[in-house]
Amino acid sequence: MAPEAPAPIETGQTTSSDGTTIGWHRLGTGPAIVVVHGALATGEQFLPVAHALADEYTLFLVDRRGRPLSGDAEKHDLATEVADVQAVLAVAGPGATLFGHSYGGIVSAATAAAGADISALVLYEPPLPVGGPLPETALADIAAAVDSGDNDRALTIFLSDVIHAPDAALADLRQTPMWAEWAALAPVWLRELRVTTALVGDLDRFTAIRNRTLLLLGGASPQHQIDATGFLAEHVPDTTLVEFPGQEHFAHVSEPAAVADAIRSFLRRG
């Protein structure tokens, strides 16, 4: 028997409250899952997970503002991106599941805390600054590199001084297509780092989440990701934790079937 053809992919757009166009890839049939990617990504990074879920769910893979399918505006803060996600949820319909990864997890958590009409929340390592602000020197160095047009250096500083990726991992990443893609987005994710570090005094907002929540965690992820996930597990009343042994922050890329299975199992239990 021939393997099933991948679900066809459509693109669509809506308009956020400030007039910015927000686009997405859509595939699959069934209840909606709106996927909000992280800083070093576009919606396409989640296509492998989406294809694994498309037989049972309709996936909206959002391109957050500043990415290819979406527009942008000079003003940017967390409230702006929450409004973007709410605009996509309005298209997806009431009772969608919201799935956010990394910085997209912060946006998704803030959207849920603001009372969005969703049936469930999935968060994969949103980097809440529970241990304090991001290193100011590193942020200043990244900004200087971006201002000088050296996005490669900006990415190197981010991964080494903020994420604390080992030198061997940096060397490996430089040999992949992801490196150039991530570097090109440096001006966009720099502002997202600033939003993240500004949340140090505003973490209580995330304790307002009342949705049934799945927390995803890489078994080999760094301590700051473990601590942020632990904060949510402690303060959000209805959470389920799934850990991916041996994986870190990008199991949706390295083990998409495992991530899809975790989401499917969680949603079916609901």
Rank of each mutant, 00 (worst) to 15 (best):
M1Y: 06
E4A: 15
E4N: 10
E10K: 10
E10T: 14
T11S: 15
Q13D: 09
Q13H: 15
S16P: 03
S16V: 10
S17V: 11
S17N: 13
D18G: 11
D18P: 05
G19D: 08
T21Q: 09
T21N: 09
I22L: 14
G23H: 03
H25M: 10
R26S: 09
R26P: 04
G28A: 04
P31R: 08
P31W: 01
P31C: 04
A32D: 00
I33N: 10
V34F: 13
H37G: 02
L40I: 09
T42Y: 07
G43V: 01
Q45M: 05
F46A: 01
L47M: 12
A50Y: 13
A52K: 06
A54S: 15
A54N: 11
D55R: 10
D55Q: 06
E56L: 12
T58W: 07
T58F: 09
L59A: 07
L61V: 09
D63Y: 02
D63N: 11
R64W: 00
R67W: 07
S70Q: 06
K75W: 13
H76W: 13
E81D: 14
V82K: 04
A83V: 02
D84C: 04
V85G: 05
V85D: 02
V88H: 04
L89D: 10
G93N: 09
G95M: 11
G95P: 12
T97R: 09
Y103S: 14
G104P: 03
G105W: 03
G105D: 02
G105L: 03
V107H: 04
A109R: 02
A110N: 03
A114L: 09
D117Q: 05
D117V: 02
S119V: 09
E125F: 03
E125K: 02
P127D: 15
P127S: 15
P135N: 14
E136S: 15
I142K: 04
A143M: 00
D147T: 06
S148F: 01
S148V: 00
S148I: 01
R153K: 11
R153Y: 00
S160C: 01
S160I: 00
I163F: 14
P166H: 06
D167S: 14
A169N: 08
A169D: 15
T176R: 15
M178H: 11
M178W: 14
L185F: 12
A186F: 07
R191F: 01
R191G: 03
G201C: 08
L203I: 04
F206L: 03
F206S: 06
I209C: 06
I209R: 05
N211A: 15
N211V: 07
T213L: 14
L215Y: 03
L215S: 04
A220R: 11
P222M: 13
Q223N: 13
Q223V: 14
H224Y: 15
Q225I: 01
Q225P: 00
Q225C: 12
A228I: 02
L232Q: 10
A233V: 07
A233T: 03
P237A: 12
P237W: 03
D238Y: 13
V242T: 15
E243D: 08
E243W: 06
S254H: 15
E255C: 13
P256K: 05
A257E: 14
A257G: 08
V259R: 03
A260M: 08
D261S: 15
A262K: 01
I263F: 12
R268W: 12
